[in-house]
């Protein structure tokens, strides 16, 4: 298993100390539990893509701030939705900013490597 199991941060410390401690740490500091990254947005492509244009918006090329504002409004309930209200509630501000940057990347860039 080369190259595996060298996670850092809370999750790695927790896994070394066992699940009971992990549960405590997660419960105590949920906001510090993970760092947002562009991969968080990969699942968005299940619905938001060029082929969906018309019913579900294609977000590529849109201003990231627009997506940030929409996600926050979905999360607060201020903006009505069918499903985005339920999904937005699962994301922190930091994660929303990371997602917005990724899903608004102009056409073509989505096919580029997602890791530097």
């Amino acid at each position: 298993m080369s190259g595996r199991t060298h996670r850092t941060g809370v999750a790695a410390r927790a896994s070394r100390r066992g699940l009971a401690v992990a549960a405590l740490l997660w419960a105590a500091v949920p906001a510090l539990a993970r760092t947002a990254h562009p991969g968080d947005a990969a699942a968005c492509g299940g619905c938001h893509a060029p082929a969906s244009a018309g019913e579900v918006p294609d977000l590529r090329g849109r201003p990231p701030a627009e997506v940030v504002a929409a996600m926050r409004a979905f999360r607060s309930g201020e903006r009505p939705a069918t499903v985005m209200d339920r999904i937005a509630k699962g994301y922190s501000d930091e994660e929303i900013r990371a997602i917005a940057a990724w899903v608004t990347a102009p056409p073509g860039e989505a096919e580029r490597p997602t890791q530097p």
């Binding site: 190259g3 760092t35 699942a43 890791q115």
Partner: peptide
């Protein structure tokens, strides 16, 4: 993403996933 990170000897990101 995780597989690509592992073969390069990098730490995989923790995923956050959606289902609808």
């Amino acid at each position: 993403r995780a597989v690509a990170a592992l073969v390069r000897g990098r730490e995989p990101d923790e995923p956050k996933l959606i289902n609808t």
